[in-house]
């Protein structure tokens, strides 16, 4: 029995250390470190609720521990405690106090719910982006500028961005923890959401609603730039350099138009058909990631082209294992040249 107790204590200490260790890692994307006003408003509310709830929890724990220590049955004490029916005063107390605490939480909750649902005003000159989710990739359409891109959402710093969210197939959910909470993308319905970013940087986004085999890898990035740099990016997207320069790239374009065109599109290129089933690849060479998951380099590109299903389970992209080495090389060269 005493050995058992000893071991039990050891286990307890071990678990406490483990819990402490948990705090050491630096998370890459965190709700607790917001970079935009939507996320900040949400964090304020999270904090208010945590404080209130921590208070409640503390009160319960104090009474709980006191009771457990004070009122344990002592050996040999067989007396029967007083059978208390209750106490109207006490019971009223723990009815009224929670109501007050909840009212304190309810007021900012309702206020924030309405303020977050507001559309940005005219003066704010918000950037409107239409976000369409597909199994398992993201399409961003800049309606004001007339182009589409995929996997990377570029936005200027300190400017409201008004997102119009919809889905082509199943339900997805748009989540950039550092910039703000989720909004679902439902087929046949358009939801809206306003975000902004106060710091230049790249923020990780995730799909947060189970959408199939590749759900865990339906990642995207939000790239925040100074306004000037963003405008440059827009200009380049409108006038992309998609013309092959070298012989390898030229061959690559041929391979592309034979194999990839039915699904993918590249703006500005002189290609005949332009698919819209799969991500628009304009400016592919400048993207950080392939398919939203692999770092963008030659080796990974080949891995993806040969076995998309191994990289992202459930991906609809067929395997291009059959391309010979030369074609594969030129295709990669062409894709990487897109700016």
């Amino acid at each position: 029995m005493s050995r058992g107790k000893h071991l039990g204590r050891l286990l307890f200490v071990f678990s406490m250390i483990a819990l402490l260790m948990a705090g050491c890692e630096e998370p890459a994307k965190s709700v607790l470190d917001p970079q935009g006003s939507t996320g900040e408003e949400q964090l304020t509310l999270i904090k208010i609720s945590i404080y209130i709830m921590a208070f409640v929890f503390a009160v319960v724990m104090v009474i709980f521990i006191y009771v457990l220590i004070r009122y344990r049955q002592k050996p040999g004490d067989d007396s029967i405690p007083e059978q208390v029916e209750g106490s109207t005063k006490l019971e009223l107390l723990w009815t009224v106090i929670p109501i007050i605490l909840l009212a304190i939480l309810a007021v900012p909750t309702v206020a924030t719910t309405f303020s977050l649902a507001e559309k940005p005003s005219e003066e704010e000159e918000a950037l409107t982006v239409k976000v369409t989710a597909h199994q398992y990739w993201w399409e961003f359409e800049y309606e004001d500028y007339g182009f589409k891109t995929a996997q990377e959402l570029h936005i200027p710093k300190d400017k409201k961005v008004y997102l119009k969210l919809t889905s082509r197939d199943v339900i997805h959910s748009f989540w950039v923890p550092a910039l703000g909470g989720k909004t679902d993308l439902n087929p046949g319905q358009t939801n809206t959401m306003t975000i902004d970013a106060k710091k230049v940087g790249t923020y990780e986004g995730r799909c947060a609603e189970l959408c199939g085999a590749g759900h865990a890898l339906m990642n995207f990035e939000v790239v925040v730039d100074e306004e000037q740099k963003f405008d440059q990016w827009v200009a380049q997207r409108q006038e992309p350099s998609s013309q092959p320069q070298t012989a390898a790239q030229e061959r690559g374009e041929e391979v592309f138009s034979q194999n990839c065109m039915s699904c993918h599109a590249i703006d500005g290129a002189e290609l005949e058909r332009k698919g819209n089933k799969a991500p628009n690849l304009t400016g592919f060479g400048e993207r950080d990631k392939i398919a939203g998951v692999l770092e963008n380099n030659d080796e990974n590109l080949e891995k993806w082209l040969k076995h998309p299903d191994k990289v992202k389970p459930g991906s609809y992209m067929p395997s291009f294992d059959f391309l010979n080495e030369k074609d594969m090389k030129s295709l990669k060269a062409y894709l990487q040249s897109l700016e």
Binding site: I52, L105, T109, L116, P177, G181, A208
Partner: peptide, 21 residues
């Protein structure tokens, strides 16, 4: 009680946008 208090935290929609799923 832990589960209950996080439940109240989840009841607040703007905060829930972050917690949800």
């Amino acid at each position: 009680v832990m589960g209950g208090v996080t439940g109240v935290m989840l009841a607040s929609p703007p905060a829930d946008y972050q917690y949800h799923d």
